[in-house]
């Protein structure tokens, strides 16, 4: 099933207004996760959901949905960020994912760990957002319905 643009003007206008707000809220949740409820997982899901919303409202082929398609190429980048931070910790001379060993001059241990938390949260968010969009594209790809009709 290929998703066509929604024909209701209310939905289109609301989507145009709502999607940037959703994305901003996702970024807020992602980076505010150290100070309040939220974090990488929820922030990533909200960011992904914003892009899914644009695909659902404006269709697969709209120019707004091209961002979501491009994001699909980032599959695995989130894992790479997470494991890369762990590897940097090992290069710094400590255990895997022990952020205190991140080699950043001028930062004390606690701030290094805080920075490590931010970086790994970004990794989780990218991974979750890309996975959510990827699953939606897998479920709504054109080939699926044709195959199920033809046998």
């Amino acid at each position: 099933m290929v998703i066509l643009p929604h024909d209701s003007i209310i939905v289109q206008t609301l989507g145009r207004f709502l999607i940037p707000v959703v994305q901003m809220f996702g970024l807020y949740v992602l980076f505010f996760g150290q100070y309040g409820p939220g974090g990488g997982f929820v922030g990533g899901v909200i960011l992904g959901t914003g892009m899914i919303l644009s695909v659902l409202i404006f269709g697969h082929d709209a120019s707004r949905s091209q961002i979501a398609k491009k994001v699909l190429h980032a599959d695995g980048v989130g894992m790479l960020i997470f494991a890369g931070v762990g590897g940097l910790c090992m290069i710094g001379g400590g255990e895997f994912l022990n952020y205190a060993n991140l080699e950043i001059p001028g930062l004390e241990t606690a701030s290094r760990r805080s920075l490590g938390i931010v970086l790994t949260q970004i990794g989780v968010a990218v991974d979750v957002a890309v996975t959510a969009i990827s699953i939606v594209f897998s479920l709504s790809a054109e080939e699926i319905i044709e195959d199920s009709i033809n046998g």
């Binding site: 606690a110 701030s111 938390i117």
Partner: peptide, 13 residues
């Protein structure tokens, strides 16, 4: 960890 949210500190650090 300089992270006021304990849940995030436990999960991520």
């Amino acid at each position: 960890t300089r992270t006021p949210n304990v849940v995030t500190a436990v999960l991520m650090d």
